[in-house]
């Protein structure tokens, strides 16, 4: 077994979801040699590479594609890069986390290699046997890959948690090698898409995908202004803020806070849903949370069917009381 992990990095650090992809690679089987592939340019790539080389004891090699073409993670050069690296490395598996980075790149790379990839794997039962949710998580499909190498997967980061204790890696730094990019331009599409900008909300709160506690507001919050009470509660207990599709569509909060089938998939230790009805597609994004709390005025709201603790009441009464009585974050 040999696995190539496509790594996403930002600000000189590799993303936690990419470390989950390494965890997934580990579970493919014994004697799996794991290589990381990072692309980018300049100083932030250099920092990310040194982070990657000591990020996980199972990583034996870090491959770097250093070029202006990779300053932003565009699918066209990335797919060609994966193709090049596979041709020289002959990996048995290629894995990426199934965020917007992996979902954008992996299928395109797979098509160039004439491979059917497997999306959103939540469990690995063998080197070719995988579990994945279908129909927004309302059914689970076990699939076997029967094609030629490489077997290509995107994995749900929440299903492959990263050990919280950083391992002692001083003795085990991975080798670092540059990828030969001289034939990258052979793909006509490289250069036909250009990055313009990224609009994002900068927040000091924990990242929604990895937070220990998530506080979510739904349609019941009623306005962007009212959403501030959700923010306040999140701040008090050190939680990330999430929202339902209805709340995003109504313009209360930006799209990157959406939890659900088409938004982010989260699995925190504590998920608190305020004014959330519990649409199937929302449940699909949070059903793996360890403890679910639901507060809703409507006692018949479907969210109560998945909640461990439910409270029938007005969120505008409950949140101030919680703010008063809950302990500050540690």
């Amino acid at each position: 077994l040999s696995t190539l992990v496509l790594v996403e990095h930002e600000g000189g650090l590799i993303k936690t979801s990419s470390l989950s992809a390494v965890e997934a690679a580990k579970s493919l089987g014994e004697d799996n040699s794991i290589s990381l592939l990072l692309a980018g340019s300049g100083h932030s790539l250099k920092e990310a590479v040194s982070h990657a080389a000591s990020s996980h004891p199972s990583v034996s090699q870090v491959l770097i594609a250093d070029s202006d073409k990779f300053t932003y993670a565009l699918a066209e050069p990335w797919a060609k890069l994966v193709n090049l690296v596979q041709q020289s490395g002959g990996y048995s598996h290629i894995i990426a986390a199934s965020g917007s980075f992996g979902k954008n790149i992996l299928p395109r790379a797979a098509a160039l290699l004439d491979i059917s990839p497997i999306t959103d794997v939540t469990k690995i039962s063998g080197s070719n046997l995988f579990l994945r949710p279908i129909y927004a998580g309302n059914a689970l499909s076990t699939v076997r890959y029967t094609g030629s190498s490489p077997c290509m997967l995107s994995i749900r980061a929440t299903s492959f948690p990263v050990a919280s204790e950083p391992p002692d890696l001083k003795s085990n730094a991975a080798s670092i090698d540059q990828v030969d990019l001289s034939t990258l331009d052979e793909d006509d599409s490289v250069g036909k898409s250009t990055y313009v900008k990224l609009s994002s909300q900068i927040s000091e709160r924990p990242d929604l995908g990895n937070a220990r506690i998530v506080v979510t507001g739904g349609r019941g919050v009623k306005s962007a202004d009212n959403f501030k009470v959700i923010d306040k509660l999140a701040e008090k207990i050190g939680a990330a803020v999430g929202a339902t599709r209805a709340a995003v569509d109504a313009g209360f909060v930006p799209n990157d806070l959406q939890v659900g089938q088409t938004g982010k998939i989260v699995a925190p230790e504590l998920y608190m849903a305020f004014g959330v009805s519990g649409a199937i597609q929302h449940i699909a994004g949070m059903r793996d949370s360890k403890v679910i709390v639901a507060i809703n005025k409507d006692a018949d709201a479907p969210i109560f069917q998945v909640a461990d603790y439910g409270l029938v009441g007005d969120l505008f009464d409950v949140i101030p009381e919680l703010l008063e009585k809950l302990p500050e974050k540690k």
């Binding site: 004439d114 491979i115 059917s116 497997i118 046997l129 949710p133 279908i134 998580g137 309302n138 059914a139 689970l140 499909s141 076990t142 699939v143 076997r144 890959y145 029967t146 094609g147 030629s148 059903r287 679910i292 006692a299 109560f304 069917q305 998945v306 909640a307 461990d308 603790y309 439910g310 409270l311 029938v312 409950v318 009381e321 919680l322 009585k325």
Partner: peptide, 24 residues
């Protein structure tokens, strides 16, 4: 191209039902 095979499709595990509480 048939390089994938669906072995089985199953229902997701049900969450055990929770409790409705009366106060904050």
């Amino acid at each position: 191209k048939s390089d994938l095979e669906v072995v089985e499709v199953t229902e997701p595990p049900k969450r055990k039902s929770g409790v409705i509480l009366s106060s904050v």
